[in-house]
Design a binder for these strands. Sequence first.
DNA 1: TTTAGGG
DNA 2: CCCTAAA
Length: 715
Amino acid sequence: MVLQKRSCYSFNGHQVPTKRRATRLARRNATFQRRLEEKQMCAFDLLATVADNLLQGKQNPTTCSDSSLEKDRDGFVEEECQDANKPLKTELSDEASCDRRCQHDFVKEGCTDANKPLKAELSDEGSSDRKCFSNISSQVYNQNCCLKEFAVHEIEGHSCIASIVTSSSCSEKFVAETLVDGKGQNGTENLASKVELGSSRSPESIGFKLDGDVSKVKDVKFGKVPMDTGTGLCCSEDLLDEKPPALVSSCCNAKLSGSDDSMPHSSLSKGCDNVLVDSRDDDEKFSGCAHPSTKIKSSRPITCIDDRKINKRLASKYLKVAQESKPDKLSNSVLDGNLKPVYSNRKNYYKSQRSEMNIPFKKRKLFKCSSDTNSNGYIRNGDTYFSLKNETNQSVSYSSSGMSKDHGTSSLGHSALRSRDSHVKLRIKSFRVPELFIEIPETATIGSLKRTVMEAVTAVLGGRLRVGVILHGKKIRDDSKTLLQTGISHDNHLDALGFALEPNFSQNLPPACATSSLRVPTADVPQPFTGYPSIPAVIHQRIQGFSNMLAEHQVTGLGNLVESDHDSAPSPINTSGEKKLSDSKELVPEMGMEALAVLRGHQKSKRTKIAQRRIRRPFSVAEVEALVQAVEKLGTGRWRDVKLRAFDNAKHRTYVDLKDKWKTLVHTARISPQQRRGEPVPQELLDRVLTAHAYWSQQQTKQQLKHHSKPCLLL
DNA sequence: TTTAGGG
DNA sequence: CCCTAAA
């Protein structure tokens, strides 16, 4: 209970021997003495802390700009140590080779060592050798800062805030790039002949990294483009897209004043196959700005959160994180399926959100208790972990309460004698993703391989994540144990401490939840929490129908492929492909599910049953125009014809959508202009709507009268 | 599958 | 946008 919100947690075995830090820590000892006495540190708190740490790393980018870079680099430790209430951050290592921008990201994201690209096993030999999924600090792999972003975001989405995940974020903005012997490969090269990636090649020589997929990055105005490296979009701000647009404009825009809106897109394109750059993002902008007060419905299970809700939560976080959160106010983490640190004061952040986050303290306690009893198999085989390292030699002190469960005899003995300040400092070196197995024909292209890997990664990280703790290679399953009890507080033990990002596909989500479709049948996985169905530690993926996959990808545009669906350009008014991007954007989540299904060994996806809510895509004026025109011609009862007539090549508009849109149009036309929201529809169009609606309503009633009167007449 | 309507 | 009864 003490660990959270402590800057003293520096992850990764990097030593941070700052004097200032030490003195501050000493000064803080007295301050936290009491808290330490009052509270019990347990393994679960550590988990929560780790998750929270990752979470906190997310917001830093929003407050950082190039101008503040120096401050970040130099004053980072100091700032952090001044206030223990501040979000936990990881320390900046002394990577002199890192360029400024990268360091910037590094700091922001708490990135540590790296240069290790994301890798995946290419064989199904069952090698236990985990490939590192880590962050990059060098120029060469600068873009892998995105990886961190990615991971953090996912963690955020999964474990901390939203407790749900949208895989779109990764598949939307990143594309896997293949590395062979550390060298990037062109996506068009033949895998076997050009790269000699055949089975004979050592799997060790091939790796993957995530590149910013420029074609999917719609708005880089907040981003910092890695001009010098140019291989990826190394802008953490790019993930601001995940925030409600309204907030992006109102909040982040100001904070990121240093960013350049007119960032040359071309600088982003390097390393990408087909690049379609379009900074427009009408959908998001409108959806967020125009409808800031999206109605929250209670009809859905609160655990089934769609993208918008996620964004809301993220937004809440963005808006509030930089503030307070006093340690003593910290409540126990809620384990309602995710690692979800919940602060009582943060509770307010979600007041306007779902009631989910407003779980009464009592209930939260219950959650924790249940987790205590159910905690087993928290860490699974197939999960890899990163190493931690104790940085300080501070003594540790714990209260004796809650020690009854202790099983670590040594820790018990120490506990009574230790001094008060018992802060274990950890530094996350890197997270690793579970092993990936990919089978791909030798004739496949590198581009295909990239996509495949991307999907594999997405499948893992696109699902929920949670953190597991490993000590001495042994999983710590009892969340109720304190760090002291488990021996984590012992300096000599920290080397053996590891954390694992675990796929957490199965939550206590209602079966109707979209994320449930991420579930993977796993027989070889130890039983996790009682309330948590088994989770795949290893996703064994065999891609056999690769050509089919490729075809699918070309449609869905997982990679850099440009959408063939030119969207809503049904009417001549619609000019050019102004919405191409929004198209591919919407397809992302759908594709995500589909791709997962493919990756799951052709297992029939439950996506049909538990479909993800589609991304909201407001109708443009041009679309409205087309719709009105078609309805004027066809009437209001022939939506299929309307669809075929005016929206035939707008795959994302179904006739139901059109019907709904017409419904809202009629409503819009009837209300006062002040009440209208969203992109203003020209009054002329609304007038036509009313006219057409009146006319066709009349026609309809006439028809009905005929049908009704006919039998009467016959009788 | 399409419509129609409530949520 | 979703969900679904009804056609």
